[in-house]
Design a protein around this nucleic acid. Sequence first.
DNA 1: CTGAAAGCGCTTACAG
DNA 2: CTGAAAGCGCTTACAG
Lengths: 339, 339
Amino acid sequence: MAAATIKDVAREARVSVASVSRALNGGGGVTAATSARIHAAAERLQYIPHAAARMLITRRTHTVGALLPDLYGEFFSELIRGIDLAARARGLHLLVSSSHGGATEAAAAVRSMQGRVDGLLILSERVDTAFLRANLPKALPVVLLNSAVSGPAFHVINIDNHGGAVAMVRHLLQAGHRSVALIAGPPGNFDASERERGYREAMARYAPRAALTVVAGDFTEESGYRAGQQLLARTKRPAAVFAANDMMAVGCLAAFKDAGARVPEDIALAGFDDIPITRYVTPALTTVRVRIADFGRLALERLADVVEHPGQETPSADTLGFEIVVRDTCGGNKPEQNS
Amino acid sequence: MAAATIKDVAREARVSVASVSRALNGGGGVTAATSARIHAAAERLQYIPHAAARMLITRRTHTVGALLPDLYGEFFSELIRGIDLAARARGLHLLVSSSHGGATEAAAAVRSMQGRVDGLLILSERVDTAFLRANLPKALPVVLLNSAVSGPAFHVINIDNHGGAVAMVRHLLQAGHRSVALIAGPPGNFDASERERGYREAMARYAPRAALTVVAGDFTEESGYRAGQQLLARTKRPAAVFAANDMMAVGCLAAFKDAGARVPEDIALAGFDDIPITRYVTPALTTVRVRIADFGRLALERLADVVEHPGQETPSADTLGFEIVVRDTCGGNKPEQNS
DNA sequence: CTGAAAGCGCTTACAG
DNA sequence: CTGAAAGCGCTTACAG
């Protein structure tokens, strides 16, 4: 037997489908007695309104889409969790889509979500203003995460890459280290460039006479290991190393250990992200913590607001707070908070 | 201006909506010339078929739902990734739903996905046969992951908890350890009980005269730490410890270190899962690896098959392979493969 | 308060 | 090959 439709309920309750609709959607305009009869009939028939039919007529899907480059790893895991929790709290479904290598794929993903979602959360290196104008139906609400896109056209929420980097470099400097080197992230990456900008700014401000040392990396553990070796090979070793993310810091730490350099006695080290591994390496890594789940939650709530008040919300650029987590790799012990 | 509909395209191409539908869906029955005109018109209007309308008429959503207890952590992150990759390869959308504390919530989640998905992937402790019969529309294809539900009624895919545990205990025994203790997982948990069953079976088979030692745990790092302390406090320390998951093994390792017990010289240790942290603790942890992403991929493919051939697929109970990953905590060095 | 009817955007027999 | 028409299951003015 096929699933019950509104017609079945109407017949069972001896009313019109219009009344069933009104009673079940609680809009009023139905006698208490009629409503009770309808609810009883719906219950008996295990009636569940057909989602597609409702979407078609109401133009609302009660679903939001999340376009992400990947679903793997600590960062995305936490991010999705935050988004999911907030969506659930608002009664929204979550449609995910990942692995958008290039702009073409991302465009296809946007198209295919068309009509299935009330709004979109997008986190992608490939997505810029031009892309959005070309591929986004103008009516579809969007919130961009960690995006370089700025300007008044779109809602954006970013991690405070710049602020976190500034604070960490200042922390290292204040802990007594005279020189701080940076292991940079991949060229062209938004997070990476913002963190480097923070490094340069903090050095200029707090240690204007110290030399800048930037070695290349690509956010992987291996690149951190190689960077650590390079740093050690220099005639003038830096007193401290700031890796643009934790995975590189972990790799760098291994390189230091393998070379017999003691951390933090011989050289200090700090990372960015506060992934779980940082607590388990020895010594435990000092790093910048960003509350990723909050990031996702905030993004979803902003999107939901935009969906509910289309056009009313003026595009905003929010930045998420961070905190410096002092563990054992940087030799200082002045905890510092910031958010 | 609102999004273009099939009517707009029909008008633009000077044909009926029926022809537009046929041309765009490639079913044939349209002249090449007409088809070209229609495609051109669709292109010009940036026409994208309305998903809800199509769902309503075709009864297909091209979406699968994933009901999970949580989205957080290495396991779910990889699982979703595997599911997502396979879904994308099949052109299916993925609707996720997590945080199903109790059966009531899970039931609500199933109901709310009704009509939005062509099939469901379910991983939940709460979901048993009775639950499924009560809450699942009989027509909705389902694949159960890591579920105790058996019998011919449902498709099930499980991790080889039992086989992995047997292999690991045998490995420890073959490495020369005379006694192996188990740090068990939470009571009532399917994975935990299967792993314990494997431990008991392997001990009975390969070390029938050795004493069985089982200390309680709940899969958390803290419970592993406490279990480690308890094990050390015993008058007869076991030669080796098999923790039912990696997080407990990591906690246990910390307890051993804190107490000055050397691993593996004084006591051997092994875990289950092969989460990333296992490679970073010192010494690196020997463990059982399960290819979680493959797990998700397989589950999705099976579901997709069931969706496409409703009723034809006979319910199956598949089990995923594993491998023993020998690192530095168990003192033996006889790599062993199994899948 | 209640119902008949139109319509959301599509697909698919059914004729021609 | 092509089109007119019915219908998927719902909601919402519009009358009564």
